[in-house]
Design a protein around this nucleic acid. Structure first.
Length: 615
RNA sequence: GCCGGUGUAGCUCAGUUGGCAGAGCGCCACUUUCGUAAAGUGGAUGUCGUCGGUUCAAGUCCGACCACCGGCUCCA
């Protein structure tokens, strides 16, 4: 979409927020409306219904019996939407009027929220303006271009109800927010709704259940997922690959415990920042104040500090896949995407400043390879500190500038598609975030190499340089997938559960046409097992169609049908996931259809080893 | 945490104004042995989220709690 069109669409969305306010105030006299900007896909308006009542005209229930305080639910949205459409034709022209605070008070004395804003704006010496349309007056800074009456009444829709704190502050009163969706045309609105349905179909929580990958138990606790054999296999395969790629570049596994004295995080600086998120552990034997580890960097630094280091030892590359624990707010937990036990494929590298570039290059290489193998595109976000708020960050400004200069150079030279985001840096250093783009076009922050000059200094880490002087090493944090749980939530939705062959928990299923061919089926299965291919054989007690359907629903990449013809020729009839019944043309091209057993195992083996992305 | 919604069989869901808890899939048994997305017959399956209240009678009405879902920066 061109910027100009976006602009006018936003103006329309903002205007619709005004219309929404009018509709609500007609149906619920006394309802106070608050803010109402355009948002990503539509608009919203916050309301306080505590002084509202339903007009008798619209609801006989409202008559006197509950004069004050109305509760509304999703069921009321259609009526409000209908009212909006009714009012729409009158919204022909926008009139702007500059007003004084006194005039605002005269119009909006009943609306505490409008008054609060108006008083504030007056104090800031902003010009107060009214915008009037369709006979509806509202305090507004403007931005209305189109006569609302001209839009397609079907191009917008009220979406859902939500609670929202007044001005986004949880100390304030919670208002009822009504969200609407609006697009330039009905067609685009429908397209968006279809996309959202698709996202729902791909919801990792749903697929996790359908494909038997993980489960949540009330008895275990919120945000603590349990992985089934298939899910655990997925985790292991991904992690093994993540570690294998780094192992090839010199990273070495280390191991650290899951609980630690809280002292460690006081030294690292995490206590002040994340103290509230720590799970506390009580020792019955000692007086130690223990916590579940929320991250691994301090532990890895203790390994570094365990003996004197020379510049010849650097870079020192540690990696560890381990679970850390964070006590997230209950309302923020969600499937696998927000959990309280987070498994990181973590690594920490200690190096000299002049080695940073090389390490980054290695990490970028690893990242590119990994994401290519799983079929996701990546983009890099260069996260720098907010220039205006230096107090948010630890460390000397000079080190920051140097670090930011280095990262910018690396980003430019890596050939990565990158963009700069100010104010997104970690408190201890700038970083490059890799954003993965999923099948629905959504972007997710996953892999993140982060440069850290602060922690090594705090822990007093040193190495002896070639002149015999003590120096502080630089530390680079890096997790390829970030958190495996969160990564899986994204990846399940990206693939809709149809994983590439090398990651499929079950790679092939053998389906003998009938019991008569079960022994040949077993032979085929054994041949695949011998090649370390994950294969199952279905029980011939069900009809062929039903077994094929079951295999398709479980998204098994290779469906191998064997019957009389196959047994006689020593072949297998290959049907790929979602490929339908193999045609003779495919067979001729050597793709699906009849294929010699030996050729099949070779073909599958090769596909697995090459980790080709094929869904 | 807060606002709104939902909670009935393993899964997806029905259950009118309060009156003997249901369907499909799955599961189990038997029959069928099949050539590419659901064979047939029969059977088992429930603390209707939990606790309390109203009632002759509660899945249904009232209250509290729990879990899950949508949302809570984007300043008229």
């Amino acid at each position: 979409m061109k910027p100009k069109e976006t602009e006018s669409l936003d103006a329309t969305r903002h205007s619709l927020a005004h219309l929404l306010a009018m509709a609500v105030r007609e149906l619920y006299p006394g309802a106070q409306n608050a803010i109402g900007p355009a948002v990503e896909n539509g608009f919203y308006q916050d309301f306080d219904f505590s002084n509202a009542h339903i007009t008798p005209l619209h609801s006989p229930l409202g008559r006197g019996e509950k004069a004050r305080g109305v509760q509304i639910s999703d069921a009321d949205l259609p009526a409000i939407e209908k009212k909006m459409r009714e009012l729409l034709p009158q919204w022909k022209e926008w009139t702007k009027k500059e007003v004084t605070l006194a005039q605002v008070k005269k119009e909006f004395a009943w609306n505490a929220y409008k008054m609060e804003l108006a008083k504030e704006f007056a104090k800031e010496r902003k010009t107060l303006t009214f915008y009037v349309c369709g006979g509806f007056v509202d305090l507004c800074k403007g931005g209305h271009t189109l006569p609302l009456a001209e839009i397609d009444p079907k191009s917008f829709k009220l979406d859902r109800l939500a609670g929202a704190y007044w001005r986004g502050d949880e100390k304030n009163k919670m208002l009822t927010r009504i969200y609407g969706l609006a697009f330039a045309t009905k067609k685009e609105l429908d397209k968006y709704l279809t996309m959202r349905e698709e996202a729902e179909r791909r919801d990792h929580r749903k697929l996790g259940q359908q494909l038997d990958l993980f489960t949540l138990s009330e008895q275990v606790g919120k945000g603590l997922p349990l992985f089934t054999p298939k899910g655990a296999l997925l985790r292991e395969l991904l992690n093994a690959y993540s570690q294998e790629l780094r192992e090839k570049k010199g990273w070495q596994k280390v191991w650290t415990p899951h609980i630690t004295k809280s002292e460690l995080y006081k030294t690292s600086g995490h206590w002040d920042k994340f103290g509230g998120e720590l799970f506390l552990v009580k020792s019955q034997e000692t007086k130690d104040e223990l916590v579940m580890k929320p991250m691994n960097c301090p532990h890895h630094q203790q390994i570094y500090a365990s003996r004197p280091r020379s510049y010849r030892d650097l870079p020192l590359k540690y990696m560890e896949t381990t679970t850390v624990y964070r006590d997230e707010k209950a309302g923020e937990l969600l499937g696998l995407s927000r959990v309280r036990c987070i498994t990181q494929d973590d690594s920490h590298t200690f190096c000299r400043p002049n080695q940073i570039e090389q390490i980054y290059q290695e990490l970028i290489d690893v990242t590119k390879t990994f994401y290519k193998s799983i079929g996701m595109q990546i983009r890099a976000r260069l996260s720098l500190r907010d220039q205006k708020r230096p107090d948010k960050y630890l460390g000397e400004p000079k080190l920051w500038e140097e670090a930011q200069r280095i990262l910018l150079k690396i980003a430019k030279e890596s050939g990565l598609d990158y963009f700069v985001a100010e104010g997104e840096a970690a408190f201890y250093g700038p970083k490059i975030d890799f954003m993965a783009v999923d099948a629905l076009g959504r972007e997710w922050q996953l892999a993140t190499p982060q440069l850290d000059f602060v922690q090594p200094k705090r822990f007093g880490l040193t190495y002896t340089d070639e002149t015999g002087k003590e120096q502080t090493p630089v530390m680079i944090h890096f997790a390829l997938m970030g958190s495996i749980e969160r990564f899986l939530s994204v990846y399940i939705e990206h693939t809709a559960g149809a994983f590439p062959l090398w990651l499929s928990p079950v790679q092939a299923t053998v389906i003998p046409i009938s019991d008569k061919f079960a022994s040949y089926g077993a032979k085929v299965k054994d041949a695949l097992v011998k090649e370390n291919i994950r294969v199952e054989m279905s029980d011939a007690n069900e009809t062929l169609g039903k077994r094929i359907r079951a295999a398709e629903l479980m998204k098994i990449p290779y469906i191998l049908v064997v019957g009389e013809k196959e047994e006689k020729n020593g072949t297998v009839n290959v049907r790929r996931y979602r490929g339908g019944q193999p045609s003779s043309a495919q067979a001729a091209a050597g793709e699906d259809g009849e294929i010699k057993l030996g050729q099949l195992t070779e073909k599958i083996r090769k596909e697995i080893t090459e980790k080709q992305y094929e869904i």
